[in-house]
Design a protein around this nucleic acid. Structure first.
Length: 794
DNA sequence: GGACTCCGTATACC
DNA sequence: ACGGGTATACGGAGTCC
């Protein structure tokens, strides 16, 4: 086991670490004899650039001068956590004596580097990590889901209302146990006490829930308070602790409170789902039921109950509600089986508690590997470099319109491959460990992948897949770390080298495809959509072609075929739609499919794309007429034309920015100001446009969705008609002006005929060619590129 | 009063 | 507490004619 990746301490079976006192850590260990714990001494530390700041600090401490000439040259250690903070305050005071700008917090001290999390400090300095020698299945994981009552006439449960009590607690674990605490014949207080008892008796390592940070835990805590009991679920009998918001900035970026339990971990599957989707970007939202269906483990007879019917079921059909709640915990368990496995493997490497590892971004994880090794070698550590990256991925579009057949190729792990192949890493990494870590991770990943592909055992394959994908996420983040402004080891020049190398490889591929008479349509960073040469049609030939053009690539750069499609509707850079051989349609890009677009607009665009891909011109016209009619006849409901936006600023920030002229008023915030007394950053608000003039200012004519009355619809019909035409105009480039006006118009007194209307394909003018060519080259689809059913070899 | 540009914010792609 | 750059859409404000 490589100590660079796993730390230098091989101790096995650590399931959790928790600060026990000012100077000790409690380490919980699982061994064949059961669970034990021990108290271990801990020496809090930070890094300093100049040891003289501590010259007159009276309390016992150590200052170790580190090797090398990086910025942070002194390691300062203490016997107590509180004394470390005394030292920090001492330094702030000394620093402010000579400073032009006073600093208030250790965060603003450029001469000091301190990791706030004591557990992480401990793991980093001892080289320990969690879960060594353990399998994911060795963890005892409990899933929890509560159902709550809602007072009649109210929309949501509110833990502050006495009658909105917890009515059901559904529980399950990864050993096949399931249990429901029902509130039918039990008081809420007894229910909560039983829950505490169960968690302690079953002595679980992990408590899991979907949206547990934002709903279940705060709700449970509030009800415990009302019942006058403590939620003492810690392994040492302590209560669940919510993070004191000492760092007031936490709220700014994350809209949940953190909870900690002594000796155990809390995992919110909703957060796991979000980070899963950050790389895949396939989920419409992060609801449990939707996710279960997406991953394909929702059972057929699964019980569904709408949120606003829960109280009714409790009053009339409590058994069905029990079934529903059990289905919820089951799906939570399956979701976690799927998503938390990777975090488990990661926690074996990085110096963080399991729950922390599930929440951290990848930059912090990578940096922790660097810092741990530098501390181990007693080597000085650099500070973040000032500056910025100057280049990024290469994106381009060569044709718009309908083209096919299409092959989609990808350079596999483009940036990490370049970093390894050309040995690019941070200049400040004087020990040269970046390359070693990256290479080792990659080797382990490929090894896991190879074993996965060879394995016949379904369970083993899943296990190895989780392993390799958790490596992959980390591997892919190394490039991002180079350009990360706050990374200690950042290096913008190195990041630029990587992207420029990437651009070169893409250009080489494009040239290769074109020289073989393939037609490159769209390019983005590491992927190319192109029409293969006529002599390479059909799946086998296409694969052969990909193999051929990959031959000239640098060593370590691998090409894979990502997919093949009947047609592409190429619209703009990063915006296209694909029609697969299974007739499924995929739409990509914010201008074609965006969460901020009104529902009717999304529907309209989707149907238009469908019609275009299938060359159904009549369908386009019909669609336009139908939506037009729906708008003028008030057939749409408020949900169809409302816009939902996320509030990313607080009331105060917004008002201040507007007043100072830094930003304009917008409808979303004006609606929020008028209707909400308070909102959290991250809250979403749905509104619609009122008035009669189609050119109204949105922020002056907007109403909350709830204010809309179907009996007196007051949406701005003219405005939404204008909006419809705006959306239709996205398709203007695909037709001649005459054709476009014929299709997207309602004045077809003499009937509409699609005859003679063909979508255009345009060669997008090259920026480098702009001198020679003013207007783009327009031509009808040529047989080589046209999708012609008869030509297909499927 | 429209056409135009500029700017900040939001969303999405890789 | 926090990976990155590239790209499009949109609303509002200011400017010009």
């Amino acid at each position: 086991m490589d100590p660079l990746l796993y730390g230098h301490n091989p101790e096995q079976g650590i399931v959790a670490v928790r600060q026990a006192s000012d100077s000790t850590m409690r380490v919980y260990i699982r061994s064949p004899e059961g669970l034990t714990s021990k108290e271990v001494e801990f020496y809090p530390f930070f890094l300093l650039s100049d040891s003289s700041f501590l010259d007159n600090f009276p309390i016992k401490h150590w200052v170790k001068e580190l090797q090398g000439s990086n910025f942070f040259r002194y390691l300062c250690a203490f016997t107590r956590w509180s004394e470390m903070w005394d030292a920090v305050h001492h330094i702030i005071e000394v620093y402010n004596r000579g400073a032009v700008k006073r600093v208030e917090s250790f965060n603003d001290l450029p001469i000091l580097h301190l990791r706030y999390d004591p557990v992480s400090q401990f793991l980093m300095q001892t080289g320990r990590t969690l879960f060594k020698g353990m399998n994911f299945e060795d963890l005892h994981r409990l899933q929890l889901d509560i159902e709550t009552y809602t007072k009649h006439g109210q929309k949501f449960s509110n833990p502050n209302r006495p009658e909105d009590q917890i009515i059901l607690i559904a529980l399950s674990d990864n050993r096949g146990w399931e249990y429901v605490i029902s509130g039918k014949n039990t008081s809420e207080k007894e229910m909560l006490l039983e829950l505490v008892q169960i968690i302690r008796e079953r002595d679980v390592d992990v408590i899991e829930g979907h949206n547990i940070f934002n709903f279940d835990l705060p709700y449970i805590l509030k009800r415990c308070e009302l019942c006058g009991i403590d939620f003492t679920v810690g392994r040492d009998g302590s209560s669940l602790r919510s993070s004191d918001s000492r760092s007031g900035s936490r709220e700014r970026f994350t809209n949940y409170i953190l909870y900690e339990i002594d000796g155990r971990h809390i995992i919110d599957t909703m957060l796991l789902l979000q980070s899963y989707d950050q790389s895949k970007r396939v989920l419409e939202h992060y609801g449990l039921k939707y996710a279960a269906q997406y991953f394909g483990f929702a059972k057929e007879d699964r019980m569904y109950i709408p949120a606003d019917r829960i109280s009714w079921y409790w009053d009339h059909e409590p058994d069905l509600l029990v079934r529903y709640a059990l289905d919820d915990v089951r799906e939570t368990r399956l979701l976690s089986d799927h998503l938390s496995r990777g975090v488990f493997y990661l926690a074996q490497m990085i110096p963080f508690n399991y729950g922390t590892a599930a929440r951290l971004g990848s930059a912090v994880k990578i940096e922790s590997l660097f810092v741990r090794e530098y501390l181990h070698q007693k080597h000085s550590i650099p500070k973040p470099q000032m500056g910025a990256q100057t280049s990024g991925g290469y994106t381009d579009i060569f044709y718009t319109g309908l083209l096919g057949p299409i092959v989609d190729i990808d350079v596999e792990s483009l940036y990490p491959s370049i970093m390894i192949g050309e040995k690019i890493g941070p200049k400040s990494d004087t020990l040269g460990i970046c390359y070693r870590i990256l290479e080792n991770l990659t080797r382990m990943r490929l090894d896991a992948k190879r074993r996965m592909n060879k394995s016949e055992n379904q369970t083993e394959r899943m296990l190895l897949d989780a392993l390799q994908s958790s490596f992959k996420i980390l591997i892919n983040s190394f490039y991002g770390y180079l350009g990360y402004s706050r990374g200690l080891f950042n290096d913008y020049e190195a990041a630029d080298k990587v992207t420029q190398s990437g651009q070169k490889i893409l250009h080489q591929l494009i040239n290769s495809i074109t020289s073989h008479l393939g037609i490159v349509v769209e390019v983005d960073t590491d992927g190319i959509f192109f029409v293969p040469p006529r002599s390479f049609q059909g799946e086998e030939k296409e694969k052969e072609f990909v193999k051929m053009i990959s031959k000239d690539l640098p060593r370590g750069i691998n090409l894979v075929m990502n997919g093949r499609y009947k047609v592409i509707l190429s619209y703009k850079k990063k915006n296209y739609a694909l029609l697969g051989y299974d007739n499924k349609i995929v739409i990509k890009g914010s201008s074609l499919i965006s969460r901020s677009m009104e529902k009717f607009g999304r529907y309209f665009i989707q149907q238009c794309v469908d019609a275009l891909l299938n060359r159904n011109i009549n369908g386009l016209h019909e669609l336009y007429l139908n939506v037009y009619r729906d708008i003028i006849e008030h057939k749409l409901s408020v949900a169809d034309f409302a816009k939902t936006e996320t509030l990313r600023e607080s009331r105060e920030e917004y008002l201040e920015a507007v007043e100072k002229g830094h930003r304009n008023r917008t409808a979303a915030y004006e609606v929020a100001l008028a209707n909400l007394t308070h909102w959290k950053i991250g809250d979403r608000i749905a509104y619609y446009i009122t008035g009669t003039d189609m050119n109204v200012k949105g922020f002056e004519h907007c109403k909350l969705v709830d204010e809309w009355d179907p009996n007196f619809p007051d949406e701005n019909m003219q405005y939404y008609l204008k909006r419809l035409l705006e959306l239709a105009k996205k398709f203007e480039v695909f037709f001649t002006p005459e054709d476009f006006h014929a299709i997207f118009s309602t004045d077809d007194l003499f009937g509409f005929s699609a005859e003679g209307i063909t979508p255009l394909m345009l060669h997008v003018p090259r920026v480098t060619e702009e001198v020679e060519e003013e207007e783009s080259e327009v031509f009808q689809i040529h047989p080589t590129i046209e999708l012609d059913e008869s030509e297909h070899i499927v």
